[in-house]
Amino acid sequence: MENNNMNLTLKVWRQKNADTKGAFVTYKAEGISPDMSFLEMLDVVNEGLIHKGEEPIHFDHDCREGICGMCSLYINGRPHGPKGAITTCQLHMRSFHDGEIIVIEPWRAAAFPVIKDLAVDRSSFDRIQQAGGFVSVNTGVTIDANSIPIPKVIADEAFNSATCIGCGACVAACKNASAMLFVSAKVTQLAMLPQGQPERWSRVQAMVAQMDAEGFGNCTNTGACEAECPKEIKMTNISKMNNDYFSAKLFREEGVHEHASSGE
């Protein structure tokens, strides 16, 4: 194989923890193979840092196959880097050219405070899901799975919304740091399915209220979220959620109910 390795300059945001100020630090990444993934390139840089006794650059990552949603990184002004429909762990160095300067920043949002370097705290997403992103059924359902047919187009559409990996790229991309795409994907998935109907109107209210409480910005329908979503979740989810929200707030009886504990 011919040697077409690359040398790159990285400008990386380093920040010791949430309480200290951060700054950009420049690193050289040398001898990088175009077949490496972006995170593997960072691994190489980190191995070099460890050898020098320095602290490696911290970033979140886990599955490295684009599904767990843990990796993030705002690369050259775009979440998950320059290519569409993939996560950072799926980004390969062949998408860059030799000598390129790469600016790497953490997701920036008040609701995603920096933990260290490039890793941010996305627990606000979990709290939104906890507020209502579920169907209240206990284990032990005895309704046969095929007792309620669901039209294929509806099932497929619900699936499209359900593919959200909760990475936060939508928030990172949005100029308002709005979480509407994330929230609406779950709301819409469940609103489309028959199983989601009983709590449809309370769910949307609960999840939006939590979203607002977390300090995300407002949606201005710019479409940046849709353009940057690694799972290509559509903005129509947002509109569908809006529709449900206004229906719920203005025309429905259901409020945000306190879910009764079932066990006792």
Binding site: G217, T220, G223, E228
Partner: peptide, 20 residues
């Protein structure tokens, strides 16, 4: 104002390709 508060630290580099 709320949107500004939602992103207290701005990005150093922003690509303009993702929205009109």
């Amino acid at each position: 104002i709320k949107n500004r508060k939602a992103r207290p630290v701005r990005y150093a580099e922003v690509s303009s390709t993702n929205a009109g």
